[in-house]
Design a protein around this nucleic acid. Sequence first.
DNA 1: GACGTTACTGAGACTCAGTATCATCTGGAG
DNA 2: CTCCAGATGATACTGAGTCTCAGTAACGTC
Lengths: 157, 157
Amino acid sequence: MAPEPPVLQRSIEAAGYRSTTARRSLLRLIEGRAEHFTAADLEADVRRRRLSIGRATIFRTLELLVDLRAVERLDLPGGDHAYVLCEPSHHHHLVCSSCGRSRDIEDHGLRAVVAEIARQTDFEIDEHRLELFGRCRACRARAATHERTGAAAGDVA
Amino acid sequence: MAPEPPVLQRSIEAAGYRSTTARRSLLRLIEGRAEHFTAADLEADVRRRRLSIGRATIFRTLELLVDLRAVERLDLPGGDHAYVLCEPSHHHHLVCSSCGRSRDIEDHGLRAVVAEIARQTDFEIDEHRLELFGRCRACRARAATHERTGAAAGDVA
DNA sequence: GACGTTACTGAGACTCAGTATCATCTGGAG
DNA sequence: CTCCAGATGATACTGAGTCTCAGTAACGTC
């Protein structure tokens, strides 16, 4: 939860893109988010802060960040799309379906599994995507507490 | 990999749903597809054969089949959704990005990887999705042949 | 076979994410 | 300061998927 430096902005500049007001604002908003968010969330954020940034620009910026691998687009179980800030290396995501936070996860033997599948099926696998959904420790703890104290079963969305 | 009997229809009936004309037609169309397909593909099919089935019904039927786990919805790398006919057990998909065919794949050690991730992150993982994309043997062979000549002795089907 | 219940249906309006177009603006190199 | 490609925002558009609702048909019962 450290207030991140403008790391996204540097990636953008390093890649030769212009540093514009719209982009800077969006990057700041995105960097402030711990959880995954949808394009609509981001748009709402923009409106709330009275920034005048067009919808198109929001999508363009997200696309840009996805290209730079600074943000990844993920497919939630419901079928919606969301974005998460992440490290620009190959990895996967573990998303807490209760609080929405996500964390990057490394290989953990997956590479071997994929290789094995490739061998057995005789496919040349050039892309794989693993997405995991569950509940993090904090959320489980919170749920347990609520149950015990008999707080009127408030489940969150 | 067998010339399917109306197995989908049986699932529908077994689950207590009605066997209607619209459903039967759709099921036949779906069972005739080896590759993954989008809702739009299916709709085009319907139109081509002059069947009068509403868009809503197409989506409703797909949803039904997804519920029955007879069909799975998958997220293609481009972000579109597609559906594939599949076994009603937990498994994953390996999709050939060249010919579009997909095949179900089993565990191959993935379960262990997921368990390991759960242990290390202290998440309670209740859903995971692995999708693999690549090129199947046949397509690789075909590509190689085309490169070498213009047409040669074809194996494959 | 006729009947009644109710699940299912098609048409079409609607929503909402994402894209395309285009006239205007602006960052930053020179 | 000048210049212009790259960026922007307004707006129209697209296309997937949903909702509604009046009408239809499947199927158990008599």
